[in-house]
Write a protein that binds this DNA or RNA. Structure first.
Lengths: 136, 136
DNA sequence: ATTCGTGCAAAGGGTTTGCATTGTT
DNA sequence: AACAATGCAAACCCTTTGCACGAAT
C-alpha cells in the first residue's frame, strides 16, 4: 500500500506552511524551510508540496507565468482575490459556496477542491500604468 | 491613448477562439490560426491572447505546470470543472455566482473576472492509478 | 534489509522579450 | 510619417526528472 514516510523534510515543509499566513511560492517556502533544515533541496520542497496538495492538506493558487502559490487548508472555508498586476492574494471569507449547483457537474465528477477566485486589481494597483507591451 | 490596431493576426486569433468550443492552449491556437495565416508566430499568438484577456474578451484556466487554456467569453456565464489527472475541462452553467458576497473583498478591489472552478477527477480518470512519484 | 525519499544538477516546457522589420492608422 | 504589431529566436523562469545515496520502516 501507499507508504508515506514521515521524514524531517516533510514535517519541516508542513510546519512552514502551517505557520505562514501569506500565500508563498515554492522558492519562498524553500528558503523558510532552510532555516530549520539547511540542506533541503528545492526539488524536495516541490515534491512535498505536490504530496500535500494531493492529500488535501494544501491548495494552490495558480497564475500563468507566475510561480504557483500555496495555501495551507484550514478549517475555515476561505477563498481568494488575486491582483492581476502585483500578484497580491487576499483571503475572502465565503460560506455560501457549498450551495453552488454541483448538480451541473459532469456525471461522476469527483470534486477535490472548489476554488472561487476574484481576479482583478487591488486598490494600490489601480492607478499604476499598464505594464504594457514591447515599447515599454 | 491606447491604440489597438486591427491586424490580420488579431482577427485570426479572435476568429479561432470564437469558433472553438473546447478550451485550447496557445500552441493549439497557434496551429489553428496558421491555417489561415501560415506565417503567424507563437509569440504573436501569446501577445494577442494576453490582449484579449486584458480586454475581457477571453478568460484563462490555469494549472501549475500545464499550458494555460483559453476560453472565449460568451454571454452565458459558465464556469469550469477541471480534471486533475487528464486536464479535461468541462463547462458548467452557474448563474448564482453574482450573488456571492463580494462585500468580503478587500477595499477598493476592482473585479475583472470571477472564476468558480471545481477541481477533481472526471469519471474516466477515477479508476486510473496515481501517476505517482520517482519510483514510477 | 527493503525501498521510499532526498540532493544534486541537468533537462524540460511554457511564456516572455529584444530587436529589426512590417504594416496600420 | 509615426509607431504599434510582428517574426524570429534566444532568454527566462518555474517545475520536473534521473540517478546514486541516505534514511525511515
Amino acid at each position: 500500500m501507499t507508504m508515506v514516510r514521515n521524514t524531517r523534510q516533510r514535517q519541516a515543509v508542513l510546519e512552514v506552511l502551517r505557520t505562514t499566513r501569506t500565500h508563498p511560492d515554492a522558492a519562498w517556502i524553500h528558503q523558510a524551510v532552510r532555516q530549520a533544515l539547511p540542506s533541503i533541496s528545492l526539488g524536495t520542497v516541490y515534491r512535498t508540496l505536490d504530496a500535500l496538495v494531493r492529500d488535501g492538506v494544501a491548495v494552490t493558487i495558480e497564475r500563468a507565468g507566475q510561480a504557483t502559490r500555496y495555501d495551507f487548508r484550514r478549517d475555515d472555508h476561505h477563498h481568494h482575490a488575486v491582483c492581476r498586476r502585483c500578484g497580491a492574494i487576499f483571503d475572502i471569507e465565503v460560506r455560501d459556496v457549498p450551495q453552488l449547483p454541483r448538480s451541473a457537474l459532469p456525471g461522476g465528477f469527483q470534486v477535490a477542491d472548489v476554488r472561487l477566485e476574484f481576479h482583478g486589481f487591488c486598490l494600490a494597483c489601480q492607478d499604476k500604468p499598464e505594464p504594457s507591451g514591447p515599447g515599454g
